[in-house]
Design a protein around this nucleic acid. Structure first.
Lengths: 144, 144
DNA sequence: CACAATTCAATTGTGCACAATACATATAGG
DNA sequence: CCTATATGTATTGTGCACAATTGAATTGTG
């Protein structure tokens, strides 16, 4: 194994992740969202009223990342946070009506993004995604 | 296109990038490096004495990211920054002897990482890397 | 019941990513 | 030469990622 940048696997992966987020950025900016905020909303649109730790498991993020992010979403009026009655340690995140309504405005985003990605030729998206998921799962289970 | 998290391409990509960086983290911590700092050193080990903007082009990073990162590497004694004589706007980054010497200690990193990734079965690394690079290039050239 | 261990969120601190701006230097046109 | 424009880095501000710690609340065990 060499130390040449072009021989590394990780750099293309990280660079691609940054590049794709850059495609989302202007689209999401119109909704006043960042990409990680959008991910949180995706999860809540699927199933509202989840705890911080449940969101963290789904997105592989910890409370140090989620707490301030959720506070910003709360200041934007998109979510509401409240302690669970049965377990006061747990904070449940709910969509507000405005957060729920944003779902309709976001509906067109996936196709917009796919359109922008369309110029990447000959990429088997399904297989590519499967590879990414296998890789992530293998690493998350890892030594640590 | 749906808004379900599992249907998105981008999230697996971003999650995989984070997971791979997490594999590097403890390995690089022994050298006192972060992953982006390691990338900068990879580029300098290939070819010492590059400008900030040249590093930025190679790594797709701007001065707002690189300037403080390089200042930290300078405080660590691994690089030296000096203005180019012919063009005083340009800052050239040089490896110090200690930065150059670190290359030997880093030599074993790629194989360590490949070992950790080895548990991700059935991933054709070469094809996967090619896909990532095609994707990144297509996006970098894009509209913006 | 009491107390230890665990769980969950929040906080703090460091570092990266990027937009916007500022500022110095360099180059070109007149 | 002198000014307009372009270039290269640095700075500032916002937001994300993560380690480490804190503190409250819950659960398990004796």
């Amino acid at each position: 194994m060499s130390l040449r940048l072009d021989d590394q696997l990780c750099f293309p992966l990280v660079a691609a992740a940054r590049a794709v987020q850059a495609v989302y950025r202007p689209v999401l900016a119109e909704l006043g969202l960042t990409y990680p905020q959008y991910l949180v909303l995706l999860v809540l649109w699927e199933s509202d009223g989840q705890s911080v730790s449940a969101l963290g498991q789904r997105l592989h993020l910890d409370s140090g990342t989620l707490t301030p992010l959720l506070q910003r979403l709360e200041r934007s009026g998109l979510v509401r946070r409240e302690r669970s009655q049965p377990d006061q340690r747990v904070v449940i995140v709910h969509l507000t009506p405005s957060g729920d309504a944003l779902r309709e405005r976001a509906a067109c985003i996936p196709s917009q993004i796919v359109g922008a990605l369309g110029s990447a030729p000959d990429v088997d998206l399904a297989a590519f995604k499967a590879t990414l998921q296998r890789l992530t799962e293998a690493l998350v289970m890892e030594p640590g």
